[in-house]
Every structure is written in C-alpha cells, then in structure tokens.
C-alpha cells in the first residue's frame, strides 16, 4: 500500500494495446468494433476513454479487463502478452491485478456490503485477519463505514457504486477499469464517485481507465482518448486534472 505517497513508479506500462482489432459477425455482415487500436496505460494513469454510443468503448475496455479477446492484435498486461493465456490463467490475473467497476454496480445481492468487498480476497485466499482489515480500510475510504452489514438493495445507487469501488480496490490491483461508472447515477452522485476515483488514483498509484460518453466525467482525467467507429481519434493530455 502506497497510501498518501506519491506515485514513484509512474511511467511503467501496465496495460498496452497493440493493433487491437475486433470483428463481430452478425449474419453476413461483419462489424468492425475496434480497428487497430494502439494504446499504453502506465502506472498511476487516470485515463478516460470517451466516445459516442457504439464507438467501441466497452469492447476496448473488455479487452483491457482480459474478459474478451481481440480478433487481431495483442493486449499486454505488465508488459506480458496475454493472447496465449488460458481462461483460467486470465482469471487468476484478473483476480489479483485488475479491479472492475460496472455501470450497473453488479454487486452480489445475497452478500452484505462487507462480504461483497471481501469476495475478491476470498478468491486470492487472503488470510481472514487481513481480509477484515482491508475490507474495513476500503469501506472507510469510500465513506461506508457502518454500512458493513447492509444488503446492496438497502443502499442508494451512489452507495452501491462506492461498494463496487471498494471491491475493485481491495486486492490492491495494478489497474481499475470502469465502464460508464456514473451512467446510472444522478449528476451530483456521479460527481462524487468521480472525485472518489480521482482521490484513490492519487492515493494508491493505481492506473484508472474510465470509459464514458459523459462530458462531465472527462474533466477528471489526465489523459482523454476519443474513440470513434472503433478507432482512437486522438489523445489530450492534461497536466492538472480537476472537475470540468
């Protein structure tokens, strides 16, 4: 944990895309969802991938999350190619190194708040005492101390997304990937979530990749990539990120 410290390993590549291409075949028609995308996210990056609906944002993020495979090209995770890894190996990589935040929160409804956050630590077989400690720390960070025993359906949307953020960070991953994390929230709550992500990015030196078509989210990024028709249109680098 590098809480409070500056990101001294900045610059190390975490996720790289090399010529990523994805086809979908629907009957006779072939949709090119991604077209030769090259991109590198380095340690501590806070990047937003922005683009209109259907431009391929989710498709790209799923490749980075190692839950989908490209038709052509390669995704490197920590500088190692992933295309030859088995499903099982990819799962191990995901549980240890990648945190995911979904548009629809995707909490496990039968588990309590604390248990939802604890779930990835069960996968990594983290000892019980450490699990408890880390869950408490993450919940504290997202401002949900005292909500441990609640069920997801007893929380507001913003609170649920906070639980999801805590869950994504609990294993101390190298990268947190979020697909439209604010789309199901009102703008005020969305703003709070983005500020939370931004703070965590600073505190933990974790790479954040956020997909959105919400212009207000864009303001939080250091890097803004615009994607259109499956192609990266351009990148804008911002020195001092802040709300738009």
């Amino acid at each position: 944990m590098q809480q409070g410290s500056f990101c001294y390993v900045a610059g190390t590549p975490v996720i790289e895309a090399q010529g990523l291409t994805k086809f979908y075949t629907l009957g006779k028609e072939t949709v090119r969802a991604l077209d030769r995308v090259d991109f590198t996210a380095t340690q501590g990056d806070f990047a937003v991938i922005n683009g209109p609906s259907g431009s391929g944002k989710t498709t790209l993020l799923n490749m980075f999350a190692l839950i989908d495979r490209p038709s052509e090209g390669e995704v490197l995770f920590e500088e190692k190619p992933t295309s030859r890894l088995t499903e099982g190996e990819l799962a191990l990589l995901r549980r240890e190194k990648i945190g995911l935040v979904f548009q629809t929160f995707n909490l496990i409804p039968v588990l309590s708040v604390a248990e939802n956050v604890e779930y990835p630590l069960l996968l990594t077989k983290t000892p019980r005492a450490e699990r408890r400690e880390r869950v408490a720390a993450r919940l504290d960070e997202v401002g949900l101390s005292g909500f441990e025993r609640r069920r997801p359906d007893e929380l507001s949307g913003g609170q649920r997304q906070r639980v999801a953020v805590a869950r994504a960070l609990v294993t101390e991953p190298r990268a947190v990937l979020a697909d439209e994390p604010t789309a199901n929230l009102d703008s005020g709550t969305g703003k709070q979530i983005m500020e939370l992500l931004q703070g965590l990015n600073r505190d933990h030196c974790v790479t954040f990749l956020v997909v959105t078509h919400d212009p207000s989210v864009v303001g939080y990024a250091q890097r803004v990539l615009t994607i259109r028709d499956g192609r990266i249109q351009g990148e804008e680098k911002r020195g001092a990120p802040g709300p738009a």
């Binding site: 191990l92 995901r94 979904f102 496990i108 996968l123």
Partner: peptide
C-alpha cells in the same frame, strides 16, 4: 447469468 459474468470478471474460474 449476469452474476456469473460478474464473479467471473472478478476472477472466479469456471470450475469455481
């Protein structure tokens, strides 16, 4: 199914 998708995305293996 969606929940299976979620826990698998979080790194749960098919066998698990």
């Amino acid at each position: 199914t969606r929940e299976v998708g979620t826990i698998r995305a979080l790194g749960t293996r098919q066998g698990e």
